[in-house]
Simulated assay, not measured.
Amino acid sequence: MRAQGGRRWFDLTPEGRRALALWEQARRQDTVQYAEKDTAHRPSKSRMQAWVPLAAQADEERCAGTEPAEIPATFARPSLTYADLEGKRLSDFTAPADLADLERLAGPGPVRWLFAPELGDAPRAVNLFCGCGGWCVGLRKILGANVDMLCIDKSADAVATSRAAGCTAVCADITLLDPEHPVFRYTAILIASPPFPVE
């Protein structure tokens, strides 16, 4: 049931709901009365549509200049946790709110890495100090290896070049990464080629 202006019944205040219920009751009684009389005495459809629901009017007056009420915590959808992902696949989560939670849980890593690889999926590799993506491009294009690789480097320019080469790359300081983060739990390969410090 909707009140005037497209507001839903549960959006109304208690006073608004009572007024809407009274308005609905009066409208039903009027309809019965008009049905018993000759149709010539019935008001036109446009006049009936012009009636303003008391509920919406009372609610608008009461709430003028105020923001809509927040949804109580008891009715809000709880956020996903890592425990909610156990035994699940990415395809089990389709709601936009769930996908937003998955992105939050994955951090800068790929969301798909939160879940166990499916049969036939490429092995997962983490490439630390990826630079401009030499390892990533070399393994995929030159050796023809089927690898799902996450490239990580501290240099934003190097990461941009790596992404331009088709790699999944993240700009991050590896000293701040948690090796026990759930994104890394199904990693099969670790590549680390730190740059040589120049003095």
Rank of each mutant, 00 (worst) to 15 (best):
F115R: 05
A55W: 02
A188N: 12
T13A: 01
H41V: 09
G107L: 02
D59Y: 05
F196Q: 04
A165I: 02
V159P: 00
E180D: 14
M1Q: 10
K37Q: 11
I191M: 12
G144K: 13
S79A: 13
P78N: 11
E118P: 06
P117N: 01
V32H: 04
A26H: 08
G166M: 11
G107I: 06
A58D: 14
C171P: 09
V147Q: 08
C167P: 00
L150R: 02
S44P: 09
A56L: 10
P117S: 08
W23G: 08
L139M: 13
P110N: 09
T13Y: 01
H41M: 03
C151L: 05
A145E: 13
G87Y: 06
T31G: 15
M1F: 03
R28V: 12
R47F: 03
V170P: 03
D98P: 01
A97S: 11
I142K: 09
P195Q: 01
K45C: 08
L143P: 01
W135Y: 08
S44C: 00
I152D: 00
G109C: 14
L143E: 12
K154I: 13
Q57M: 11
R112I: 04
Q25H: 10
S91H: 06
K141L: 05
D92W: 02
D11S: 12
D101G: 14
R7P: 01
A116C: 09
E24N: 07
P53Q: 07
V198K: 06
L176H: 08
T175E: 11
E24L: 13
A106P: 07
F129G: 00
E36K: 11
G6W: 03
P179F: 06
T39R: 08
P43Q: 08
E103H: 03
H41R: 08
V52N: 03
F93C: 10
S193A: 15
D121N: 11
F184T: 00
R163G: 12
G5E: 07
P110D: 03
V137P: 00
P117R: 03
R104S: 05
A97E: 14
R62I: 07
R112G: 14
G107N: 08
P110Q: 07
A165V: 02
K141W: 02
P96E: 15
P14K: 04
I71E: 12
K37P: 03
D30E: 13
C167F: 01
D84Y: 05
R185N: 11
L80T: 04
V159G: 01
K37D: 05
P197L: 05
A145F: 12
L12G: 12
A58W: 05
E103Q: 10
N146G: 08
P197V: 04
L20D: 02
L20G: 05
A95Y: 08
L176Q: 15
